[in-house]
């Protein structure tokens, strides 16, 4: 049942012109960023060659690009997740799902998996872009895979958060603005906390991604992402249950 709901969500995302537009814009920005970093690396390469332990092309080009991908997705994911439940409510199609033999958990996981498949495609295309460097030079695949994992985890967290906000309202625009405000808030508590050891950092997915972005795989970071995702998916399930019990 989760697969059926995920396939429906994926189909719905791909049938929207706005999704293709956002994908196009994202690819354009990524390509720009990639070429700009590559150009910068080619210019500083002679100086880097003089260093004893110079950073490789993967660390110089790929890591900053993936960092940018995480920021762009933070802005774009609420635009994809806003429809999850808010639009179903607005169009009154939620009745079809709620009157069918589908549990709230299946419903939430189905939508989540569909969105995740869509977002994973974006992440994979950005990896493919960077992998083209492999034609001319050796790549640090460990760093690339750590970034890939980090991006998938942060996307998972953002999607879960966005779906939860979408379940709170029947207005997709409100869901998008609410999701964006929440994710920006989480990002800002990381970048604005001046004390490096402040607890605020721990709450921010961006903080945990930074270590994976640098190629450092820490089980605490993985645990954070999984916990963050599970928390918001559970809250969404409770919200749907609350809707059945509490009101319209």
């Amino acid at each position: 049942m989760i697969r059926i709901l995920a396939a429906r969500e994926l189909h719905s995302l791909f049938s929207l012109p706005s999704s293709w537009f956002m994908l196009g814009v994202l690819q354009f920005l990524l390509a720009w960023s990639y070429l700009a970093r590559l150009d910068a690396w080619l210019q500083v390469q002679p100086q880097l060659a003089l260093l004893a332990n110079p950073p490789g092309v993967t660390a110089w080009v790929a890591a900053p690009m993936f960092d940018m991908v995480s920021l762009l997705l933070m802005v774009l994911i609420p635009l994809f997740t806003m429809r999850a439940f808010a639009e179903e409510r607005r169009n009154q199609t939620l009745a079809l799902l709620l009157s069918s033999p589908v549990s709230n958990t299946q419903l939430v996981l189905g939508k989540f998996c569909g969105l995740l498949a869509f977002l994973a495609l974006i992440v994979c295309t950005s990896l493919l872009m960077v992998a083209t460097l492999g034609v001319g030079t050796a790549l640090d695949w460990g760093l690339l895979l750590a970034n890939l994992l980090g991006l998938l985890l942060i996307v998972m967290s953002y999607a879960a958060f966005g779906i939860y906000v979408s379940a709170l309202t029947s207005q997709p625009l409100v869901a998008a603005i609410g999701g964006l405000a929440g994710l920006l808030g989480l990002w800002m508590i990381d970048v604005t906390a001046s004390d490096e050891h402040a607890l605020w950092h721990i709450l921010s997915p961006a903080f945990h991604f930074r270590k994976l972005n640098a190629g450092l795989l820490d089980s605490a970071d993985l645990g954070f992402f999984l916990l963050f995702t599970a928390t918001f998916l559970l809250l969404t399930i409770f919200r749907l249950q609350g809707n059945r019990q509490g009101g319209r």
């Binding site: 189909h11 719905s12 049938s15 929207l16 169009n91 199609t93 009745a95």
Partner: peptide, 13 residues
């Protein structure tokens, strides 16, 4: 089988 007051249709399908 349930048909609500507003048919729950996905118009893009």
């Amino acid at each position: 089988g349930f048909l609500p007051e507003v048919p729950p249709l996905y118009r893009e399908l």
